[in-house]
């Protein structure tokens, strides 16, 4: 049980996907202008990363490993994640139109989110069991959500604070992201 808690704390705080591993930077900078859209993106990422962990784990351990095709991992994962996201998009449109209305526009964006790919590859590298892989995927996406929400809050405030002209827009956003990342370094020794 304690190992699951450690996985969660490790993925959310210590090795935060965005701020420590630098994965998923594109949506981190792209959809962090408004809290509403950021929350939508977080919901979609949590869902996709958790599910993608399960799917890619099965792919790795049931298809690639028995055939000795570990080196095709990247291509196979891209293939499966992209189709999986599309499939979820179609299925959600049919069965949960409300949810699709809220998350729909973010699902295609996630196809190109490297955090999803990162969690799939890390699951294999860290030799997690199926359940641990799913927990890790969920925790990693929570970490992504945490970083994105904090960053969005900061950006909304900074936009109002009227930074000097040279820093306005992306420049101050990158500076903020760097400081936020430094702040998360403070968690580095939390879990050994």
């Amino acid at each position: 049980m304690i190992s699951y808690v450690l996985i969660v704390i490790g993925a959310v705080l210590v090795n935060n996907f965005v701020l420590t591993r630098f994965l998923g930077i594109c949506p981190f900078l792209g959809v962090s202008k408004k809290l509403g859209t950021a929350l939508g993106m977080c919901g979609a990422v949590i869902f996709v990363m958790t599910a993608a962990s399960a799917v890619t784990w099965a792919l790795q351990h049931k298809i690639l490993n028995p055939l000795g095709l570990g080196y095709m991992q990247t291509i196979a994962f891209i293939l499966v994640i992209a189709s999986f996201v599309q499939l979820v998009d179609i299925a959600m449109k049919k069965s949960a139109p409300k949810l699709h209305g809220a998350l729909g526009i973010f699902l295609p964006l996630i196809t190109t989110n490297c955090a999803v790919m990162g969690v799939a590859v890390l699951n294999v590298q860290l030799k997690y069991s199926f359940i641990k892989a799913v927990v890790f995927g969920f925790a990693a996406s929570l970490g992504f959500a945490l970083a994105l929400i904090i960053f969005t809050g900061l950006r909304e405030k900074i936009d109002r604070a009227n930074p000097p002209r040279a820093f306005q827009g992306v420049a101050i956003a990158l500076v903020t992201a760097g400081l936020l990342s430094l702040a998360f370094m403070g968690f580095a020794t939390l879990v050994k």
């Binding site: 690639l64 095709l69 196979a76 189709s83 599309q86 499939l87």
Partner: peptide, 19 residues
């Protein structure tokens, strides 16, 4: 290799088409 990856791709593609 090509069979396995192609197979995975085909499965995904079919699933998408059916969906």
């Amino acid at each position: 290799t090509s069979g396995a990856i192609g197979g995975v791709g085909l499965t995904c593609g079919t699933a998408l088409a059916l969906a």
